[in-house]
Design a binder for these strands. Structure first.
Length: 427
RNA sequence: GUGGCCGUAGCUCACCAGGUAGAGCACCGGAUUGUGACUCCGGAGGUAGCGGGUUCAAGACCCGUCGGCCACCCCA
């Protein structure tokens, strides 16, 4: 107990918390399937090369956050740091994108980062990916679907949508040059990180949190002025759709994403309820990725949600997860009574499996077993001792009846199932 | 990877000008014969994250390390 411990940043989700996770998963599955999305289950491990080609060589994820190791065959493998690359790989491998394909998945992702609240090394995402539709109605569908999710989770008034278009590669190229040209005059005023990015990935300077840098950017060229006409039309059409759907958004021309595969639409759902980890959901269009990974050219778009962050928000709502309380607790004293209890509990489960039945009290006096029954939260205690066994009866005690707690009756063992139904269905 | 704060029983925390640890909750048992919740009594549980240093003596001071939180970075 001293020296066994989980790996840093890789946390247990304890029984107390799992109901909330299940609730979240259930809501998401219901919403996305109402849009016709189908679940796909993907490996946690992929060839390292997939992420280098998919996410981009100069991204932070690939440069310093991946769990990469050689397997026994000396091939380099990596624990997936995100879901899109693997999903696209699967789509290519099985030729799934012959027609429009809409997929979703959920599961753990791995990134070697410094843990904080809302950020772990093993964390969980739900991802949604759509293949085969290039027009902006698909972008709109994805945003609508995510908005509907917040609605179903009760989070709508805590989240806000930020939207941008980063155009095609040509417009980004032209904009990058203009931005670098502008910023080169102010190199000394930039923060250290931004100075470095000026060489490696200038557009990432746009979402710097440094205030002085942001002030400098006020005079910088605007990405919007550099969009190619098609991207511009795509973007304005998307905004039309969203307005029609009644979804509020802010166009943030400094919103760029850290993964190289995006083009045109990018969006983020943000909240201020989570401190520095404000993004709960993010995504966009990635029309070039399928081809880049060796498939036929297929347009695509998608987004991913951080489950830990959503769970934190749900907890913040006061949505405390409740463990399913016990319904029936068997109290059995004596060797014969234990046998009878086991037999009766099994027959109850056969008759109706929806009750939570506990029948392994571990012995002890009636008193201590009743105490355990009480703490289990069970509404009914079935009591068996030598007398009951002899007479084929049970004591049935109501632990939580509204009026006059502790009512107890003696009934035949044959009548137990139907009497339990009567008592438990009343509420 | 950088910076700040922190690390005492299962949980929340206390003590201490440095002299080898306590409370509440939880847990277990008991309050006469087969019955829970309230009350009373009792019990178990910590080599004070780990390692080193200073000291006659350290959980308390110093260093390192691991871990947690917060921010940066980055991202979901």
């Amino acid at each position: 107990m001293k020296n066994v411990r989980s790996v840093r940043g890789m946390n247990d989700i304890l029984p107390q918390e799992t109901p909330l996770w299940q609730y979240l998963e259930w809501q998401v599955a219901a919403v996305v399937s109402s849009y016709g999305y189908q679940e796909i289950r993907l490996p946690l491990v992929e060839f390292t090369d997939l992420f280098h080609r998919g996410i981009g060589e100069v991204t932070d994820i690939v440069e310093k956050e991946m769990y990469t190791f050689p397997d026994r065959n000396d091939e380099s493998l990596t624990l997936r740091p995100e879901g899109t690359a693997g999903c696209v790989r699967s789509v290519c491998q099985h030729n799934l994108a012959a027609s429009t394909t809409k997929l979703w998945y959920a599961g753990p992702m791995f990134r070697y980062e410094r843990p904080q609240k809302g950020r772990q090394r093993q964390f969980h995402q739900i991802g949604v990916e759509s293949f085969g539709v290039a027009s902006p109605d698909m972008d709109a569908e994805l945003v609508c679907m995510s908005a509907r999710l917040w609605e179903s989770l009760g989070l709508t008034d805590q989240v806000h949508l930020q939207l941008n278009s980063i155009g095609d590669s040509g417009s980004r190229q032209r904009y990058r040059e203009a931005l670098v040209a502008y910023l080169n005059d102010y190199v000394d005023e930039l923060d250290e990180d931004s100075q470095r990015r000026l060489q490696t990935n200038p557009m990432r300077i746009l979402d710097s949190k440094n205030q002085q840098t942001q002030a400098l950017l006020d005079g910088a060229p605007d990405l919007r002025d550099y969009l190619d006409p098609e991207s511009e039309a795509h973007f304005s059409r998307l905004q039309e759709f969203l307005t029609a759907a009644g979804i509020a958004f802010t166009v943030n021309t400094r919103l760029v994403r850290g993964l190289d595969y995006y083009n045109r639409t990018v969006f983020e759902w943000v909240t201020d309820a989570l401190g520095a980890q404000g993004t709960i959901c993010a995504g966009g269009r990635y029309d070039g990725l399928v081809e880049q990974l060796g498939g036929k050219p297929v347009p695509a778009a998608g987004f991913a949600m951080g489950m830990e962050r959503l769970v934190l928000m749900l907890q913040g709502l006061g949505k405390v997860s409740e463990n399913p309380a016990a319904d029936i607790y068997f109290v059995a004293a004596g060797a014969d009574a234990e046998v009878a209890a086991l037999r009766l509990a099994e027959s109850l489960r056969t008759a109706d499996s929806k009750y939570h039945i506990h029948c392994n009290s571990g012995g002890g006096s009636f008193k201590s077993q009743l105490k355990k029954a009480d703490r289990s939260g069970a509404r009914l205690a079935v009591i068996l001792g030598d007398n009951e066994v002899e007479q084929n009866t049970v004591g049935l005690k109501q632990m939580r009846s509204a009026a006059g707690d502790g009512q107890q009756e003696v009934i035949s063992q044959q009548a137990l199932a139907s009497r339990i139904d009567e008592l438990l269905r009343e509420h």
